[in-house]
């Protein structure tokens, strides 16, 4: 399979991240000179064969982060920092590069609502064939047709439904069709933006299991794909993620191993703890108050006004230590263990 991208000619090892985000900030300039800090100083990596779940409540900036990676920010946005994918900085790439080499080829987008993402007036087969012809080197009617069928098979989309239009499909099949389109370009990074919103639990499980399968599957160059999944569905994140990044008021406040986050010892940032405790199968108690406005963030820790552990120290911005931005994190049993078991490559920080 001719891999169109390059993870980099320089020594591809298991440890080289697919996506490497450093100091990514996005702000919007609003009428009247107001500035909205939608994303502030995000650092994270996504390794091949790894799923990083970016979780947080709606309006915390996670969708803006996704738009920034895809080069889909609106005209009133400004960005800073870098997001390297292969040899390319996604934030400085021009529209032509983004259109020709990034979208579909380097990043496969699994959309939030497949029903809206698919063209309503065309069959799934014709959309798949068009995508195959546009993104891969396959030429010739028969070959394209076969490649489209193979793409459908890869996501277990029943061949009998290929000639249907999107509105004739159930939610699950539409999701699979959208996933098939995202996988056609054999992109090293999959970006899933709220892929499970509005789906039933069973369907959520099926969808994330399938995504997991595609992360684990070998790609053209023998490594796995990286998956960045943006979601507010903690159960879905628990099911699929290797690592979890918790976003609050535009900042990543905790970045840690998923098993430790959802299991023992649990999250260490008070916000992450509160978010987990709000789940109906846990304490089912909300975090008091509401997140601050991104246009009017406090100078110190943005969570302090809602935090039961807040002290005077919280008036200053907490530094990020060990993937955690908090002045008084919840105790972690065995910080040594944390370091040794976390597989995250960027924890070996520069």
């Amino acid at each position: 399979m001719g891999h169109p991208s390059s993870i980099g000619a320089d020594a591809v090892t298991e440890r080289t991240p697919v996506l490497s985000v450093r100091g990514l900030s996005v702000r919007f300039l609003m009428p009247g000179g107001r500035r909205v800090a939608a994303v502030t100083d995000a650092h994270f990596d996504v390794a091949p064969g790894e799923c990083l779940a970016l979780i947080g409540e709606s309006g915390c900036g996670k969708s803006v982060l996704a738009s920034a990676l895809l080069g889909l920010l609106p005209a009133n946005a400004q960005s800073a920092g870098s997001a390297r994918l292969g040899g390319l900085d996604l934030l400085t790439a021009d529209e032509k590069t983004l259109g020709r080499t990034v979208r579909g080829r380097l990043i496969g987008l699994v959309p939030q609502s497949p029903a809206a993402h698919l063209t309503p007036v065309r069959t799934i087969r014709s959309q798949l064939e068009e995508t195959v012809a546009a993104l891969t080197g396959v030429r010739g009617r028969a070959a394209v047709r076969a490649a489209a069928r193979a793409a459908a098979e890869r996501v277990a989309f029943p061949a009998g439904h290929l000639d249907r239009h999107p509105h004739e499909l159930s939610g699950g099949l539409a999701q699979r069709a959208a996933t098939a389109l995202a996988l056609v370009g054999d992109a090293p990074l999959l970006l899933a933006d709220e892929p499970t919103t509005g789906l039933d639990r069973d369907l959520v499980d099926r969808t994330v299991d399938e995504l997991r399968r595609h992360v684990d599957a070998e790609t053209g160059d023998g490594t796995g794909r990286g998956l960045l999944m943006i979601t507010h569905d903690l159960a879905a994140a628990e099911r699929i993620a290797d690592r979890v990044a918790v976003m609050y008021a535009g900042r990543i406040v905790e970045l840690t191993d998923a098993r430790r986050f959802f299991g023992s010892p649990g999250p260490r940032h008070p916000y992450s703890r509160g978010l987990l405790q709000a789940l109906p199968d846990r304490a089912f108690t909300p975090i008091p108050g509401m997140p601050p406005e991104l246009g009017d963030l406090p100078g110190g820790c943005a969570f302090a006004p809602r935090c039961p552990r807040a002290t005077g120290a919280c008036a200053a911005l907490p530094p990020v230590t060990d993937g955690l931005a908090c002045h008084h994190p919840l105790p972690a049993s065995g910080a040594e263990e944390l370091r040794s078991t976390t597989p995250a490559p960027e924890n070996a920080r520069a």
Partner: peptide, 17 residues
Amino acid sequence: DEMTAMLDASTTAALVA
């Protein structure tokens, strides 16, 4: 009717409360 389907865990818990 699916009041909390689009919302995060904390907001869900707050609305239910």
